[in-house]
């Protein structure tokens, strides 16, 4: 009988490498709370992360964690889910990891719709390499590689995901732990690929998009009367509207998942007994005789 766990049961003994005040602490806290609230067991959670400050998070969640190469967390996680569909698969990475070096994989994960949750920890900068522009940095953002200001327009990850066939799209803010926890729980429960983008300020390098800036520039979808999470047109309009940044769940849709389409009712592949050779495999050579 599995015992009910608390967020502390999802903590590791590994000391954090993040700066004091980093938005990522809020993400980690919400994630641990969500895992506890969902009644998950650490042994059944596969937590895959990318590279960067955000990618370090896999070391801090008590689970089966994998810290791969930059930008490739999604393909790795997709295969983990296919290999053992009984696992709860959660992926986390930064804006550079998901929207720059891993952008191609992001699109394809969205369209494949594997049953897993993806948390994009967006600090609008490359923190671990000391503050260069990221794909979500604002136009004109000045940094070491753009002393004259960043000339590249920021990317809208959630709008892109919607266009690519996203089935669960949400945005949270690391200063709003309760909302973020609920969002992550919904994302894990969602039967499909759930994207949760979290505004996670970098207190060391991003002096523009600070906690204060966010507090002045966000609003809650929940406050918008009659918002329908199943209205794709409305979701796209909301995500692409100029002005303040909306927080909440933008869109939900249920369509067949990659794991359901490829595995059906078959048992988890990782449980197959491969040590004994199936007699059908011996007979297979008859086709070549």
């Amino acid at each position: 009988m599995a015992t009910v766990l608390s967020p502390k049961d999802f903590a590791t003994a590994t000391p954090s490498w993040w700066c004091a005040g980093c938005g990522d602490f809020g993400v980690l806290a919400a994630l641990k709370q969500a895992c506890a609230d969902l009644g998950l067991q650490p042994k059944d959670v596969a937590f895959i992360s990318g590279i960067g400050c955000s990618g370090k998070i896999s070391g801090y969640l008590h689970s089966y964690a994998f810290h791969g190469v930059h930008g490739r967390a999604l393909p790795t996680a997709t295969a983990v889910k296919l290999a053992n569909k009984d696992l709860t698969v959660i992926v986390a990475g930064g804006d550079g990891d998901g929207y720059a070096i891993g952008a191609g994989h992001f699109l394809h994960a969205v369209r494949r719709n594997p049953n897993m949750a993806y948390i994009v920890m967006d600090n609008q900068t490359y923190g671990l390499t000391k503050g260069q522009s990221s794909p979500t940095s604002m136009l004109g953002y000045k940094d070491g590689t753009h002393p004259q200001g960043n000339p590249d327009a920021p990317i809208n990850g959630l709008a892109i995901a919607l266009a690519a066939g996203g089935t669960f799209l949400a945005r949270g803010f690391s200063s709003e732990p309760k909302q973020m926890t609920e969002m992550i729980k919904e994302a894990v429960r969602h039967p499909g690929f759930a994207v949760v983008e979290v505004m996670s300020p970098c207190v060391t390098f991003n002096k523009i998009n600070t906690y204060k800036w966010f507090k002045e520039n966000v609003y809650h979808l929940d406050d918008a009367p009659g918002y329908d999470q199943h209205d794709k047109q409305k979701a796209f309009a909301t995500l692409t509207a100029a002005g303040k940044i909306p927080l909440g769940i933008f869109y939900r849709e249920v369509r067949p998942t990659l794991d359901a389409l490829t595995l059906g009712d078959h048992p988890a592949i990782s449980s197959l007994p491969i040590e004994t050779i199936d007699p059908r495999l011996v007979a297979l050579q008859d086709a070549y005789a």
């Binding site: 596969a46 895959i48 994998f66 791969g68 190469v69 930008g71 490739r72 393909p75 790795t76 996680a77 997709t78 295969a79 983990v80 296919l82 290999a83 053992n84 696992l87 191609g104 994989h105 394809h108 592949i269 990782s270």
Partner: peptide
């Protein structure tokens, strides 16, 4: 890039 990382992911899961 995806193919090799998928191969690794499936193996990680056993």
């Amino acid at each position: 890039l995806a193919a090799i990382n998928m191969t690794i992911g499936a193996s990680f899961a056993g």
